[in-house]
Amino acid sequence: MLLEIKDLHAGIEGKEILKGLNLTVNKGEVHAIMGPNGSGKSTLSKVLAGHPSYEVLSGEVIYQGKNLLELEPDERAREGVFLAFQYPVEVPGVSNSQFLRLAYNEKMKHLGEEELDPLEFNDYLKEKAKIVEMDSSFFKRSVNEGFSGGEKKRNEILQMAVLEPKLAILDETDSGLDIDALRIVAEGVNKLRSSENGIILVTHYQRLLDYIVPDFVHVLAGGKIVKEGGKELALELEEKGYDWVKAANK
């Protein structure tokens, strides 16, 4: 088992948003978490990544046999947890390649493996960039600065490719993407999907799931998972709307 969330209650600024969430993710599985605005999708992503503004009130998150909630955000990342941000942050003055190499080497150091020098890393990065069809002009630019919405999301998937996480959480990766960018991002994720990792797709719309086909779909409403099923659940949801599950839940 890769990840087990048990009766998780969490929130922000004293407001409880997740109200008893349960979820199990095994290696090799893709789970879609769908839900209307305000259902707690983003809170779940942030809590798993360890965002300091979010507070865990009760419950457990076991990741590879460890208590994930006890780890600092950077420790979680080095242990293989990756969050693709809904709104990737711009880091002026720091180039993409500097940033990625530091992150990569921090992980390698942690795993006791060999770090890469700039030249070696550049070769590695070029290979990975093919996954999201990014050319090397992006490497020298400041992280996300002046990137279009689509470029930012592709850059997130590039980071995922470089860091090779065991658990990737993609927070609304489809939002703000045109159809071409969506295809590139989705194909990138599909290439990175393997029997060794687990992926959580957090999304409002079914559209992304046409490209990245999930093994399981969970519907989140009011801070809880209210419905679960296979990929066909997403289509049903698309057809009937979120009011259907909200009503069913009452």
Partner: peptide, 19 residues
């Protein structure tokens, strides 16, 4: 910005210096 760097596995001290 700091959280973004931390979420990529960069330790806090290095992340602050990098920013």
């Amino acid at each position: 910005e700091l959280f973004y760097l931390l979420s990529r596995g960069i330790s806090e001290n290095l992340a602050k210096n990098l920013l």
